[in-house]
Simulated scan of single mutants.
Amino acid sequence: MSEQSLVSDFKQAMQELAASVNVVTSRHDGSRNGLTATAVCSLSTEPAAMLVCIHKDVQALAEIRASGYFCINVLSADQQNVSDVFAGRSGARGEQRFLEAGDWSPSQSGAPMLDDALASVVCELKEMNQSGTHHICIGHVREVRLNQGASPLIYAQQQYGTLTDLPEAERAA
């Protein structure tokens, strides 16, 4: 298999990997920035830690590195617009994204928290390692805000969905 074919097949395979949709935000020197991310997971409970993978060319990476903090905002099923704006689909960049999508409050560290996110998890950056095209950012949890009750926004096969889209028998499995 050629390298080009492998990359193409890999990209198609990853479209089948359903993931929660998150907006990762940071603030440094009065400048807010953020991005949509699906490569997010919990890493440890002791200490409480999260992992997020961010493409090396994403502008928000500089604010995360400079501030030393980031916030993972877990989106609910009705927040597709927020995801689209922070994924760059509206053309907005930097501060303009926050004005177009949602209401925001600063965390104790200053990292923006989406007011009606299912959960907002503020992390202090502890490690940043580059692997291929992405940086792996590991952060220790410093603050959590919960707004439970809605269904999370899921992304797979190049489209949004929710857990409620699954038949009841499949959800129980």
Rank of each mutant, 00 (worst) to 15 (best):
E124Y: 05
A150K: 14
S120Q: 05
I136F: 06
S151R: 09
T164C: 12
P167L: 07
D165A: 12
Q158K: 15
N147S: 05
G149W: 13
Q158P: 11
A156K: 08
P167E: 09
E124A: 11
L146I: 13
R142I: 10
L146R: 11
P112F: 02
Q130N: 09
V141H: 02
Y160T: 05
C123H: 06
E170R: 13
E168H: 14
E170V: 15
H135Q: 12
V122Q: 01
Q157H: 15
L163C: 12
V144K: 00
N129E: 12
V122M: 03
K126C: 15
G110V: 05
D165F: 08
P152N: 06
D115N: 12
L114E: 04
L153S: 05
I138C: 00
E127Y: 10
S151M: 09
N129R: 13
C137T: 06
K126A: 15
G149N: 13
L163P: 10
T133N: 11
Q130P: 07
A119C: 08
M113D: 03
A117M: 00
A150L: 13
G139V: 06
R145S: 12
L163W: 11
A169W: 12
Y155C: 06
Y160C: 04
H134C: 03
H134N: 04
S151N: 14
L166Y: 10
C137Q: 02
I138K: 00
A111I: 02
D165L: 08
V122S: 00
Q159E: 09
C123S: 04
D115W: 08
G149Q: 12
A117N: 02
P152T: 07
T133E: 10
C137P: 07
S120P: 00
D115K: 09
E127K: 11
M113Q: 09
V121I: 08
R142N: 08
A169K: 14
H134F: 00
V122N: 00
Y160G: 02
G132F: 01
C123P: 03
L153A: 05
V121M: 01
G132I: 01
N129V: 13
C123A: 09
R145E: 11
V121G: 02
E170L: 15
C123Q: 06
I136A: 07
A150S: 14
A150W: 10
E143Q: 10
Q158G: 13
S151A: 13
E124V: 10
L114Q: 05
N147L: 04
E127C: 10
T133L: 10
M128Y: 01
P152W: 00
L114D: 04
L114M: 08
L146D: 10
H134V: 01
R142T: 13
D115T: 10
D115G: 06
D116I: 05
P112Q: 03
E127F: 11
A150Q: 15
L118N: 03
L163A: 11
Q157M: 13
A111E: 02
Q158A: 14
V141A: 03
T133Q: 09
C123D: 03
